[in-house]
Nucleic acid binder design. Structure first.
Lengths: 117, 117
DNA sequence: TTTTACCGTGCCATACAAAGAACGAGAAAT
DNA sequence: ATTTCTCGTTCTTTGTATGGCACGGTAAAA
């Protein structure tokens, strides 16, 4: 037998295989596809989805956010969009500090105006 | 007039006031109380909930996680839990800052009362 | 005292999010 | 040719999160 494609590593995965990886129903994978723009598997002539490894990575990320971290789908979408996920709390802490600083400045100014008058 | 409690800032808030702060229904505040252990307002003789500022800060944190960051209630619970075991809790840090602010307010008010008398 | 205005608990209703099921159909492997 | 997997669409179910009601109690104001 001449040249035969050897299966060292799969190039594409079917929806059933992907669903199995995450132990979810195929319908859920399709459902997420409708909810998340980043999921965009190619389709063959027949229309069947062909998932590449990067595709699966993205699904994995969504799975992580939704099933492990407890985001709503919408919350997960926002996390993905903003590209962040961690570190936001620090920003908030800094904002709070700035807020307090402004408050202190206002107190100082009040004091200054009273003693000057 | 001798010693009279000055109402610089309220010590306790009713559920209605708290609900109003976050523009939600009082029933939601009660519901969260059942879902989140960290919410534990004291109750007066009659049974009415009395919220202190730290209580409100905790509610604020939950509000932030659920309404702004898009966590499910369960997801928010886990964030809160894991944040505590991490030792340095960001919420507590922010709460601490708030406490400091309150302290500064008390200093300011003391100053004001002296100059007024 | 009567009214007004909360608040309590407990239960039920709604709204929407999330997921799954059911349908008929087609390709491909066995 | 029977089984197995997939398709898209649509329908149905489940679950979460929230709101609202009924009914009673308390307190303070009128």
């Amino acid at each position: 037998m001449p040249y035969k494609e050897r299966e060292i590593e799969k190039k594409y995965y079917s929806i059933g295989e992907v669903a199995q990886m995450f132990k979810v129903a195929p319908s859920l994978i399709r459902y997420w596809e409708g909810e998340f723009d980043i999921i965009n598997p190619k389709k063959d002539r027949k229309g069947n989805r062909r998932y590449t490894k990067p595709d699966i990575q993205k699904i994995k990320y969504i799975y992580h956010l939704v099933k492990e971290k407890g985001y709503t789908l919408q919350g997960a979408q926002e996390v993905i969009k903003s590209g962040k996920e961690a570190g936001i709390d620090k920003v908030e802490a800094v904002q709070k500090l700035q807020e307090i600083k402004d408050f202190l400045i206002s107190i100082r100014d009040q004091y200054n105006s009273k003693s000057e008058s």
